[in-house]
Write a protein that binds this DNA or RNA. Sequence first.
DNA 1: TATTGTTATACTCTATAACTATA
DNA 2: TATAGTTATAGAGTATAACAATA
Lengths: 165, 165
Amino acid sequence: MADVLEPKQLNTYFALMEAVSLLQHAVSQQLRAEGGLSYVQFELLARLSSSDGPLTMTELADGVVYSRSGLTHQAGLLEKAGLVTRGPSADDHRATVVGITEAGRELVAKVLPGHVDAVRRLLFAPLSTSDLDALGGIMARVRDHMRAEPPRSVATRRSPKGSGA
Amino acid sequence: MADVLEPKQLNTYFALMEAVSLLQHAVSQQLRAEGGLSYVQFELLARLSSSDGPLTMTELADGVVYSRSGLTHQAGLLEKAGLVTRGPSADDHRATVVGITEAGRELVAKVLPGHVDAVRRLLFAPLSTSDLDALGGIMARVRDHMRAEPPRSVATRRSPKGSGA
DNA sequence: TATTGTTATACTCTATAACTATA
DNA sequence: TATAGTTATAGAGTATAACAATA
């Protein structure tokens, strides 16, 4: 049995992919309807709003986006909407630092309750406390595993701090 | 308690979304590189190849795609590539039945080992047997919950338009 | 030379609305 | 009237490659 997943694995994989697909779809609709934001844009704003200060493009990209130009594009849209500011970094003159504006914070605050409500209603409602613990532990482990061992063929330059691939 | 997720929930939610995002990205790359397929296209072919016979567009769409025109588009691409056939249904003259071709089966067979390998390496490698059981049970429950209680504002046909940007 | 970020561009995916035809 | 599917089209997201500037 070298190249088939066992049935249990297959079912788990499909259930995971479909459930998350449904969740992503629902959550994207909520963000779009209530704030005109894509999920990625929301993630960027949320990251900036919970950060102590501005972040560089590279810091901001980490884990959210898979190409540099994609982030430039999204940051441009957010800037044009007055939700973030971009400016040169004092430390490293190559870098751009991105900060959230008051309007950006307000939009996050406006959208967050509905977002949280959707997640709770769709994802957590059918789960017990021990399910929550189990799921959290499992997915954190999977995430860390995948961060550490990037998919083959992803040789693109990434990972700002640690010396990546 | 009204509009924040508890920290544990928040971490679980983020871990789930990031892990699956990484998995989707890796798996999409593998499918694209080895078979020129998107994940959705692979799903459609896989569904057809494990089906007893042809499926109607509506049957095929179920759980894979969120709009009818999207499926028409993807089916058109697959047909143009010689991977599926489309024809009128005998039972219901409104319906289109979609069947997989020999080339379609061959492509699935060609791509599947790498796909399975990626999933095993990225998702299952860091999980124990009991993790697998737990994850499978949890995600099946979440999936069924979301199927049963579709997100508000998702109406298959005719939905009032929300605000946007 | 390597890294940060932008630009230009092209391509895919998705979704809405209008349409045809069958039930 | 309701359902199955297609078309046309428009918009958003993403990625690649070439580029400029700084380390």
